[in-house]
């Protein structure tokens, strides 16, 4: 088996969590890659939904924005944005909301709004888009992001999307009956919330990754599960599928000019 990068391991580990029966609301960037790898490998029946209204889409290349034309061309149907949020998300038909994050805390609360004070921000980020309601209306939330001390912080600056709040039964106390964040896949590890405290706990380290590396790139004291497993390395099929997808994406986005060199990030 050829070597793989930490980012490839992250995308592939995230893709494995999806099932063919899932109806997945897909965030752009890393979640989009993971969802499409799942569709192209073990979960061909998965329904991928982007917030632009495309239901059951099967893009040949990864979209640069959530509203690329190919999402519509390959979808089972395309609905209006109000219908997307009312009937499909609020109506409870989404099994997995798959999100990225600029900042996250140990309870899976996400900030994509501001760094610093809301009224006088140090950095004004794009904002929540669809995420505040995805976080509470989808049956569960998966999150995928690369680890860094800037991104995984002790306290987030703004609660864009509610995870487990202060932990424990905080969701229930707010009347939120969905499960919230149940999985975090980073470039180093797989994390799951502790059943009682809801704090994200490392359950699996990617091949070759040490506990120290996970701690060095995380802004809170990391908890490890009683038994920490090793994530299965990417299979040849998984790796080939991801690399082909990335290559097709790069070629397609370069067709116009030099686009596609950079990562995708939007709401």
């Amino acid at each position: 088996m050829s070597a793989f990068t930490a980012n490839e391991m992250m995308t592939i580990a995230a893709s494995r969590a999806l099932k063919g029966s899932d109806v997945c609301f897909v965030g752009i960037g890393a979640p989009s890659a993971a969802c499409n790898v799942a569709r192209l490998t073990h979960a061909p029946g998965i329904t991928l939904i982007y917030e632009s209204g495309t239901i059951g889409t099967a893009p040949d290349v990864l979209p640069l924005s959530i509203g690329d034309g190919e999402l519509c061309e390959t979808a089972v149907t395309t609905v209006s944005v109000p219908e997307m949020f009312r009937y499909w998300l609020q109506g409870g038909r989404i099994t997995i909301g798959f999100l990225g994050a600029a900042q996250i805390d140990r309870f899976g609360n996400i900030n994509t709004t501001v760094i610093g004070d809301y009224a006088r921000p140090k950095t004004r980020l794009p904002g929540g888009g669809g995420a505040p309601e995805i976080a509470t209306s989808a049956q569960q939330i998966f999150i995928t992001m690369a680890q860094s001390k800037r991104a995984m912080v002790d306290r987030i600056d703004f609660f864009t999307s509610f995870g487990h709040g202060e932990g424990g039964d905080h969701r229930k106390r707010l009347g939120i009956d969905t499960a919230g964040p149940t999985l975090l896949v980073t470039d180093l590890a797989v994390w799951k919330p502790d059943p009682a405290t809801k704090e994200f706990t490392v359950v699996s380290l990617h091949p070759g990754v040490t506990r120290e590396q996970v701690q060095e790139t995380c802004g809170w004291p990391v908890r490890f599960a009683a038994t920490v497993e090793e994530t299965l390395a990417p299979t040849a099929l998984e790796l080939q599928t991801l690399r082909d997808l990335k290559a097709r994406t790069e070629a397609a986005h370069k067709a116009g000019a030099s686009a596609g060199k950079r990562g995708s990030k939007d709401g």
């Binding site: 752009i28 640069l64 924005s65 959530i66 509203g67 006088r120 921000p121 140090k122 950095t123 004004r124 980020l125 794009p126 904002g127 929540g128 888009g129 669809g130 950079r262 995708s264 990030k265 939007d266 709401g267």
Partner: peptide, 21 residues
């Protein structure tokens, strides 16, 4: 009045940031 202020697929809106920040 807005719900997501970004340059889709690229990142942040720099004139908007200059106005807000």
């Amino acid at each position: 009045v807005f719900s997501y202020a970004g340059n889709p697929g690229v990142g942040l809106l720099r004139r908007l940031r200059d106005a807000v920040e």
